[in-house]
């Protein structure tokens, strides 16, 4: 059944949002919220945040500190364009996020506020040490570490009447990435995902190693034990084996409709190994890429 048509309020000035949010819910890309609404969630009044995208850039880089400010209300396509080389882990995550049509609409704000342990933008942001900028009902600002913002499945530190305006990360290092495992390549909720960032010193040692994994705990979590095993090490086979061996200490996966805890533990080890020692493209076929008829015929 099609739910009743909601009242849609369309602020064009960020200063008006808090006032309108009284008794209403915020919608930006709508790619999750409108699915919840279709499933029966009541939301008679919605406040559109997507119209605020025209009032500011998607990504701002502070030239002095390298800090990135990512708009919470822009489509992910704009975030990926704006952060292209500056934040490789997030750009990679957006590249594997849902589908082109969804990336053209979905926002970082929505992805975080929905509080899914499988959210694909969260690991890169958590690994990078992101803070969430929140506007309170009286129009004031508060800032909370993303690690504290994510409270549990579908639970975040956002009170009624508050909205997320941006997410900031300290300058990410040049090396970072993201891998996920899902039922298929597109439109798949992650069984497991991993984001990483580190500096590679001239002698090959990794420093500032930061890892975050999704769908292995009530929230996206940092892999602190595994990262400690890698810190200041050259990622040889032995070092990688040692880091992979301790990953169980960082995660607490459960059996759910998408995957078993056992499978997730195995995949966690595999993802970390692949992040550190990436398989070369020719080494084995990518299970997801099947050649087209034309390619087969060539």
């Amino acid at each position: 059944m099609t739910p009743a048509t909601p009242t849609l309020l369309r602020p064009t000035d960020p200063a008006d949002v808090s006032r309108l949010l009284a008794g209403a819910r915020a919608v930006a890309g709508g790619t999750d919220l409108l699915v919840q609404r279709r499933a029966g969630a009541e939301m008679p009044t919605l406040v559109d945040l997507s119209g605020l995208a025209g009032t500011r850039p998607a990504v701002v880089r502070d030239d002095a500190t390298g800090e990135l400010t990512l708009s919470a209300v822009h489509p992910l396509t704009d975030i990926a364009d704006g952060a292209a080389r500056a934040f490789p882990a997030l750009t990679a995550a957006i590249g594997q996020f849902a589908s082109t049509t969804i990336r053209n609409r979905a926002t970082i704000g929505g992805n975080l506020v929905t509080g899914s342990p499988a959210a694909d933008t969260a690991p890169a942001l958590l690994a990078a040490g992101a803070v969430v900028d929140i506007v309170t009902p009286d129009g004031a600002r508060r800032t909370v570490d993303l690690a504290d913002f994510l409270l549990g499945p579908r639970r975040v530190d956002l009170a009624v009447g508050e909205w997320v305006t941006s997410v900031r990360v300290p300058q990410p290092p040049a090396e970072g990435g993201f891998r996920k495992i899902g039922g298929r390549r597109a439109q798949a909720i992650s069984f497991l995902n991993l984001a990483w960032q580190w500096h590679r010193e001239p002698d090959g040692r990794l420093t500032g190693v930061r890892l975050a994994m999704g769908s292995v705990a009530p929230t996206v979590v940092r892999l602190r034990t595994a990262a400690a095993a890698l810190e200041a090490q050259i990622p040889t086979q032995d070092v990688v084996d040692a880091a992979v061996a301790v990953i169980d200490a960082d995660i607490s996966p459960i059996d759910d409709l998408r995957a078993s805890a056992h499978y997730r533990r195995r995949c966690a080890r595999g993802l970390l190994r692949e992040a550190l020692l990436p398989p070369s493209p020719g080494e084995r076929p990518d299970q997801y890429v099947t050649p087209t008829t034309r390619e087969k015929n060539q």
Binding site: R10, G30, T31, L34, T77, T101, I102, N104, R105
Partner: peptide, 21 residues
């Protein structure tokens, strides 16, 4: 994707967009 239209040059599923947006 069967409801995909082009909004400002981008392919977007029109079932997840409210017309007021």
């Amino acid at each position: 994707g069967s409801c995909t239209v082009i909004i400002d040059g981008r392919a977007i599923t029109s079932c997840l967009v409210l017309v007021g947006q």
